[in-house]
Amino acid sequence: MANFSPTVRHRRLLRELRQLRIAAGLKQEEVAEHLDWSTSRMTKVEGGTLRISVNDVRAMLQLYGLREGAEYEALIQLARQARERGWWHAYSDVIPQWFQVYVGLEAEASSLRNYEPELVHGLLQTEDYARAVYQAARVLDSADEIDRHVGLRMARQDVITRSEDPMHLWAIMNEAALRRRVGGAHVMERQLRHLVNLSANPNVTIQVLPYEAGAHAAMLGSFAVLSFAEGGGEVVYLEYMTGSLYLEKSEEVQVYTLTYDHLRASALSPRDSVDLIAKLAREGF
């Protein structure tokens, strides 16, 4: 599976186009008028919810005063790459567009910091555990649809297991996620042992937030911070039942990175966390 994400290419393209528009002293409304677009279309384009063609990019670059040259050609190439389909498109029948965006970001993130209060993070789940989660959470889905969801989840795990440039994953889980019996005793035992094995990988760090930590910095729920190489910045991902939010403003990202630092301080050390997980696996459910 190639370490390539059209989603990230698209977001990088939009960031460059937005900077060029601002440098040209143009407002979104003015650009929309010049390109014979509606203002709402321009808002959706810069917001990343509406794809644009290579010809649209050419028209925008011309309007922004960028002449043909190395930078111009680089942006046109980026626009072409952003139009390609990612590997996850094969699962588009069972995942909504808002989650396809996340999978695209995850596919090219250099690191991911995540906090989960209720369950083991998806990239660390065994197939049986993942199936039990989907069977409980997606009660209206058919058996075939559940299989497709599980298949996608297993495919996503390539980002941390691939031999070339794997993602650095730092996962903090509430102790409740480890003690909650998902799929039965045998499934949980295998899941816990799987966590112990994965923790031996240099790119995977697991911490447990114990009950005795009491109130903590992430009492309001789970979140993820994705970081990207080559000046790609950071994105905070928040998910709810029917959609998601992506936060990219530096002041917003800073709040969550600081929160994560507090969580790491409150959690057991990585070594003590693995010892606890191994102990729970031995004790059984």
Score class of each variant (00 low, 15 high):
179 R>S: 04
255 V>E: 11
233 G>H: 09
125 Q>N: 05
180 R>S: 09
161 T>G: 04
81 Q>H: 12
166 P>L: 13
183 G>A: 01
92 S>A: 15
204 V>L: 03
228 F>R: 13
250 S>K: 11
166 P>S: 13
217 A>K: 07
274 V>C: 02
67 R>T: 12
252 E>N: 10
127 E>M: 02
204 V>H: 05
37 W>F: 07
97 Q>T: 12
281 A>I: 08
18 R>C: 09
209 L>I: 03
22 I>R: 14
239 E>I: 06
267 A>T: 07
123 L>S: 06
44 K>L: 12
89 H>F: 04
15 R>I: 08
66 L>I: 08
285 F>K: 13
135 Q>C: 07
168 H>Q: 14
174 N>E: 12
98 W>S: 09
182 V>D: 04
105 L>D: 06
242 T>W: 12
58 R>M: 11
230 E>W: 07
275 D>F: 03
242 T>A: 14
266 S>R: 09
258 L>T: 15
162 R>H: 06
114 N>S: 15
200 A>D: 14
240 Y>I: 11
178 L>A: 01
159 V>W: 07
128 D>Q: 05
225 V>Y: 08
3 N>D: 12
15 R>V: 10
133 V>K: 08
36 D>V: 04
195 L>G: 04
187 V>G: 05
168 H>D: 15
62 Q>A: 06
42 M>R: 04
215 A>K: 08
80 R>T: 05
274 V>T: 11
140 L>A: 14
98 W>M: 02
282 R>H: 14
278 A>F: 05
242 T>F: 11
108 E>D: 15
197 N>C: 11
239 E>A: 07
242 T>D: 10
137 A>Q: 14
61 L>I: 02
226 L>F: 14
16 E>K: 14
212 E>A: 14
285 F>W: 15
52 I>P: 00
171 A>P: 13
52 I>N: 06
96 P>W: 08
238 L>V: 10
268 L>S: 03
143 A>V: 02
78 L>V: 09
89 H>A: 07
147 D>V: 00
146 I>C: 09
54 V>M: 09
165 D>Y: 09
225 V>Q: 10
